[in-house]
Amino acid sequence: MPTRELQTQLELLRSQLREDAPLTEEERAALLAITRDIESRLERQGAGEPDDSLVDGVNLAVERFEVSHPSTAMTLRSIMQTLASMGI
């Protein structure tokens, strides 16, 4: 169930990338990289080990987008919570 929830959140993030307030190329690239990292982690989900670099990356993105793109930051926070509940 958490995997499905995470997929939904990732789709919301992709939608925000397409439709939200303008992002710089650097911001867009950072969010796309996070999305790819999470998807890669889901593909090898059997590992079940915490991935501090992934969590740190999402956390940094939350801090980065908090003021300029609050809805994106909120989506990223939800993704962090889901990752934590999955033990990632």
Rank of each mutant, 00 (worst) to 15 (best):
V62I: 07
S85Q: 14
L12Y: 01
T82A: 08
G87S: 13
N59A: 09
S53D: 15
T82G: 12
L31K: 09
L32E: 15
A21M: 11
T8S: 05
Q45S: 10
I38A: 01
L12D: 14
S68W: 04
R41W: 09
E63I: 06
R18E: 13
S15Y: 07
T3W: 04
L10C: 04
G48H: 02
R14L: 03
E66V: 05
I34M: 11
R14K: 05
I38M: 02
H69E: 04
I79N: 07
L17M: 15
A73N: 04
T82R: 06
S15D: 14
I88F: 10
M80H: 11
S71M: 06
N59P: 00
L6E: 02
L17H: 12
G87Q: 09
L32W: 10
F65M: 11
R36H: 11
Q9C: 04
D51I: 02
E11F: 01
R14D: 09
Q81T: 03
L10Y: 03
S40W: 10
R18K: 09
G48N: 10
V62C: 11
L42A: 01
L23D: 13
R18N: 10
L83P: 02
I79C: 01
N59F: 03
S40T: 05
V58I: 02
E26K: 13
L23T: 10
T35P: 00
A21H: 13
L23A: 11
E66G: 07
R14I: 03
E63W: 05
Q81F: 03
M1T: 10
A29M: 10
S53I: 01
R77S: 05
G57C: 02
I79V: 00
E5M: 01
F65Q: 04
A29V: 05
G57V: 01
P50S: 14
G87N: 08
L6N: 06
R41M: 13
P22C: 13
Q16N: 03
A61V: 06
L42E: 09
D51G: 07
A61E: 00
D52E: 13
S78D: 12
D56F: 07
A47T: 04
E25D: 14
E25Q: 15
V55W: 02
L76Y: 09
A29G: 14
P22L: 12
D51C: 02
L6T: 04
L31H: 09
T3D: 13
T82N: 13
E39W: 00
V58P: 06
L13P: 05
S15A: 07
T8W: 08
A47N: 12
L54K: 07
S85L: 12
T8K: 06
P2N: 15
R41N: 13
M74H: 08
T35L: 08
E27A: 13
L32Y: 14
L31R: 08
T3H: 11
T82K: 00
E26G: 12
P70G: 10
L6W: 07
T72N: 02
S53F: 01
L54Y: 04
S71W: 00
E11D: 11
L31T: 07
E63T: 02
S53E: 14
L60K: 13
E43A: 09
D56L: 08
D20E: 15
D20R: 04
A61G: 03
S78A: 08
R4P: 05
L76P: 04
G46R: 05
M80E: 13
D52H: 07
L12K: 05
A21E: 15
R41T: 08
G48K: 00
T35D: 15
R41L: 09
T24N: 14
L12E: 14
M86L: 09
